[in-house]
Design a protein around this nucleic acid. Structure first.
Lengths: 128, 128
DNA sequence: CTTAATACCTAAGAAAATTATGCATTAAGA
DNA sequence: TCTTAATGCATAATTTTCTTAGGTATTAAG
């Protein structure tokens, strides 16, 4: 007897994440005080029902960039023999988080308005 | 006597456009049947009160890619000695427009939800 | 004992935008 | 009339950033 599972891919085209990754990460840190990389990927995955999945190849370089830019500071914590690297917002980082968050909200409003004027057809319903 | 003008930059950080340009262009064409490149830039600029400004360096290569991918067809029209290049959606292009539009709507909902859980502080008001 | 999950990282390549051009026509203004 | 701004196309070099595909190591679970 085999158990058969079917998956429907609900993930967004990764294109959309592109302009938004920094906004996402900074605001996650604004809420959680400190987080480590892997934690960030899991958190986003859970909170979006797997729809947004951050790849480590994109995340870690971003975190390093943000640290280099002075938006984050790091702190290493040993868990047994493993070392976690926690990231925390600086003051500048907090400001950036707010700015980017507001910017995204406004942008998505503008975009949705544009898209609405484009097509007046009834909205398709999404699986979820 | 000099005329002094002050500008307040209301434009979005161009980061956000990145994942969205294709969605925007295809849906603009879905609404307008046919448009030429320059017209697209002006239309978006006007409809968004200058907040979204498409650069030609991004737009034209995109249009060429979309044509190469079979989402658009072109048609050249002479206006005096100038030649306009009109773009029009193919059937595939129309489908893509709808898909991407729905995807964006859903994505922005998800993102906004995430951002809302991040910070419960009162929203900053935006100029305009 | 082996696999999955946790946890970090980087390098090569691809994709797409920015910046900076270039050319030409036409309208508007000094 | 002369010059500038607007219209209209386009590309090339560079940069940025993501994807893909690895690598290492620890710990939990089966």
């Amino acid at each position: 007897m085999h158990k058969i599972q079917m998956y429907i891919c609900l993930m967004y085209s990764s294109e959309l994440i592109k302009g938004t990754l920094k906004t996402l990460v900074l605001n996650l840190l604004a809420k959680h005080d400190r987080m480590y990389g892997y934690e960030i990927t899991q958190h986003v995955k859970e909170r979006t029902e797997e729809k947004i999945q951050l790849t480590e190849g994109a995340l870690y370089p971003l975190l390093h960039r943000l640290e280099a830019d002075g938006l984050l500071t790091t702190e290493k914590v040993s868990i047994g023999k493993r070392v976690r690297k926690y990231y925390k917002l600086t003051k500048t980082g907090k400001q950036a988080a707010t700015t980017l968050s507001d910017e995204f909200r406004q942008f998505s409003k503008t975009m949705n308005k544009l898209l609405d004027t484009f097509q007046s057809k009834p909205q398709l319903q999404w699986l979820n």
